[in-house]
């Protein structure tokens, strides 16, 4: 069977929560097309949701669209989400999640950054010309699980 060409595509989404469905549907379709293993698909989808929703939440004054660059090869999945015209963001200022707290003390805050840091193989934050890009890569497993 002929292998599909590496997938490289850019999409734009309005910065509203309802656009998340479209973004996640697109990822699901592309992952299925490129036979991405379920485990990689789960974690990359989760990382994309957490970054996208954080961008919406933290830059409420902006009405610029958020772009997503997706690059899939046989060995890896790379996603870059870019938020245009926003202040710099230093991920080092996000406090570490304390996973040992009791139910009463726990909140879901900061969990998104924690997940991206923990489960992606490579994460880069860059801020150039007023645009914030968050890039992450997950190396694919050879066999589906």
């Amino acid at each position: 069977m002929r292998r599909p060409e590496p997938a490289t595509q850019t999409s734009e989404f309005p910065r509203v929560l309802s656009a998340l469905s479209e973004l996640l549907d697109l990822l699901g379709e592309v992952f299925e097309q490129y036979n991405v293993d379920n485990r990689s698909a789960f974690w990359v989808t989760l990382a994309a949701e957490e970054v996208f929703t954080n961008m919406i939440r933290h830059n409420r004054s902006s009405d610029n669209r958020i772009s997503m660059d997706l690059d899939i090869t046989e060995t890896r999945i790379s996603v870059r989400l870019t938020d245009y015209g926003v202040p710099p963001f230093d991920p080092a200022t996000v406090p570490e999640v304390d996973t040992t707290l009791s139910a009463e003390q726990r909140t879901p805050g900061g969990l998104g950054v924690f997940i991206v840091r923990s489960k992606m193989d490579d994460v880069t934050y860059s801020h150039q010309n007023g645009n914030l890009s968050v890039s992450f890569t997950k190396y694919r497993k050879l066999a589906d699980d």
Binding site: F42, T45, T53, A103, E104, T107, P108, I115
Partner: peptide, 23 residues
């Protein structure tokens, strides 16, 4: 098949509300 931190937050809030009743 999937849950994000938003979903976990929803479950956590309910769990806290029901904490004294068994959660």
């Amino acid at each position: 098949v999937y849950i994000s931190s938003a979903g976990i937050g929803s479950l956590l809030a309910t769990h806290k509300r029901l904490d004294k009743l068994g959660g």
